[in-house]
Simulated scan of single mutants.
Amino acid sequence: MRTLVVASQKGGVGKTTIAGHLAVMAELSNAGPVALIDTDPQGSLSSWWNERQAERPLFASVDIANLSMHLKKLAKAGVKLAIIDTPPAVTGTIRDVLAVADLVLIPTRPSPHDLRAVGSTVDLVEQAGKRMVFVINGAAARARITGEAAVALSQHGTVAPVTLYQRTDFAASMIDGRTVQELDANSKSAEEIKNLWMYVFTQIHKVDTVRTNVTA
């Protein structure tokens, strides 16, 4: 089992939306079973999951203090991927979650305020010694700042080659426990999520490759 952590100490960057969408896309791509874990006290991800009609992805209620043990139980039960949503500005919880991450996905919106705020998250990930990937979310079409944001983020680490643009279907889908690919699999938003999942899957596979080489 692999663990993907979606983290940012800046609120409102789309962590929950991205976590839910990637989990569904992973299931649709036969990369499951997938288990979602919500460590945010606001419980936005669990509220979204409770609205779902579909049985997958799974949802796992865990005790952060025993997170590693819970993940081992999920792996033993056959779960292939755990995706963990994290709270903003609660460094103790984020540190505990980062400790079990195979890959950390850091969403950020292309605004000066959001870009300035990303440094604290990067510091936590680097302290944990984990691999991280930035993803630009909520971008405006043809806005120059989107490209400028990608350049700025690349100074800190890898930027996903897929940008998620601001569209109403992302918010609409989360209302009733669905995702954009379940609303309209042919939409631009669904294509972006599909491409982001393919990239994230490749990055998690790189983690596997590194581990294999080290073991050999």
Results as ranks from 00 to 15, higher is better:
179 T>G: 00
183 L>W: 13
157 G>I: 04
171 A>N: 14
150 A>Q: 13
179 T>C: 06
153 L>V: 01
184 D>A: 03
155 Q>R: 09
171 A>E: 15
180 V>M: 07
168 T>N: 12
146 T>P: 00
176 D>L: 01
163 T>L: 08
149 A>E: 08
169 D>P: 15
159 V>D: 13
181 Q>E: 14
147 G>Y: 08
155 Q>C: 04
180 V>Y: 05
174 M>F: 04
166 Q>G: 06
158 T>V: 07
176 D>C: 01
166 Q>F: 01
178 R>F: 04
155 Q>A: 05
148 E>D: 12
175 I>M: 06
181 Q>N: 11
173 S>C: 02
177 G>P: 15
178 R>N: 05
158 T>C: 04
160 A>F: 00
162 V>T: 13
156 H>C: 06
148 E>P: 00
147 G>A: 02
149 A>D: 06
157 G>L: 10
164 L>C: 09
165 Y>L: 02
150 A>R: 10
152 A>D: 14
168 T>W: 09
173 S>E: 08
154 S>L: 03
170 F>M: 08
175 I>R: 14
162 V>P: 15
179 T>Q: 09
179 T>I: 07
148 E>M: 03
170 F>G: 03
159 V>M: 02
158 T>N: 09
179 T>H: 07
160 A>N: 08
156 H>Y: 10
177 G>D: 07
161 P>A: 02
161 P>D: 11
154 S>V: 00
156 H>S: 12
184 D>S: 09
155 Q>W: 08
171 A>I: 09
